[in-house]
């Protein structure tokens, strides 16, 4: 069992967890993930590590399916059944010059440690954070702490600039000082759109992929993605890949493989919520907290 030290909502359905896992914390580097199994009958799901200190790792979880919703019912003092990692290759951190880091929705949590590492490597870091609406924006204050510039877009214009992250990226690409490197993490359509913006000008662009995984150690091959026409396992060869080489269509299709089962599981959960469910949505303080 792995104990939860801290748990709090950052936005509706988006919760931050700090879990006691000294072995993982000691080894974690930006871009790596863990596999979590919440309970005895639980499935194994990958979650990227947002931060770590000497003994804990921080995960930021968006409640979408049954497992993430269940996870989001847990509080400090509770525990998850299994936690293994750090898995995947760490982000490749270099000095590029100007690096643009794009976080879409909860993707911001995944981009956060890499953005920080890019800054530490001496890059000028511009963050573009996108969300559907103001309440769903996370980690803006944390990004502002070290980024040279932070641009925020919302689909509905409730905060920042109304529009898409790619509008901001295009403006940067067409400026007199275009970026030298782009990292984009978020929904598949967003990552695909970013890749198209940077393809023609040939700006190196990296995306972090989130295919369905089981073991996370290369054993099952379920997370295979097509990159440059070749099959790669996101869990051991990734999760970060050259955005211009990724076949996003195959990734989208494969991620929908269990949709019917996922919907059934979620419906069952909504009908029979677990006893430990204690909804703290009302206490949520969107975007106003600092991860450790």
């Amino acid at each position: 069992m792995y104990r939860i030290i801290e748990a709090r909502f950052l936005a509706p359905e988006v919760k931050l967890f700090r879990l006691e896992a000294p072995d993982i914390a000691r080894k974690q580097q930006a871009g790596q993930f863990v596999i979590v199994r919440v309970h005895d009958h639980g499935e194994r799901i990958p979650l990227t590590i947002a931060a770590s200190d000497a003994t804990t790792v921080t995960l930021i979880v968006q409640g979408i399916g049954k497992t993430t919703r269940l996870l989001n019912t847990l509080e400090a003092g509770d525990a998850v059944r299994d936690l293994v990692g750090p898995l995947g290759k760490p982000s490749e951190i270099h000095y590029y010059g100007t690096a643009v880091v794009i976080g879409g929705g909860v993707g911001t949590a995944i981009a956060y440690p890499t953005a920080k590492a890019l800054k530490y490597a001496g890059n000028r870091v511009i963050a573009i954070l996108g969300a559907r609406t103001r309440d769903l924006l996370i980690l803006e204050a944390e990004m502002r702490e070290f980024c040279d510039e932070v641009r925020v877009t919302t689909d509905d214009g409730s905060y920042g600039v109304k529009g898409l992250v790619t509008d901001q990226l295009e403006a940067l690409v067409n400026s007199p000082t275009p970026p030298d490197f782009v990292l984009a993490i978020g929904p598949i359509p967003m990552m695909r759109a970013v890749a198209e913006v940077t393809r023609a000008p040939g700006i190196q662009t990296v995306v972090s992929l989130n295919p369905i995984m089981v073991d996370g150690t290369g054993m099952c091959g379920g997370c295979r993605v097509v990159v440059d026409g070749r099959s790669q396992f996101a869990c051991v060869d990734g999760p970060e890949f050259d955005a211009h080489q990724v076949d996003f269509k195959i990734l989208s299709a494969r991620n929908a493989m269990y949709r019917a089962a996922e919907q059934q599981a979620l419906a069952d959960l909504n009908q029979h919520p677990p006893e430990l469910h204690r909804c703290r949505l009302a206490d949520a303080q969107p975007g106003a907290v600092t991860p450790p």
Binding site: E43, R44, A261, A265
Partner: peptide, 12 residues
Amino acid sequence: MKANQFPAYDQP
């Protein structure tokens, strides 16, 4: 993962 017992087990 006991997917044959889905939905009693979560992995499909």
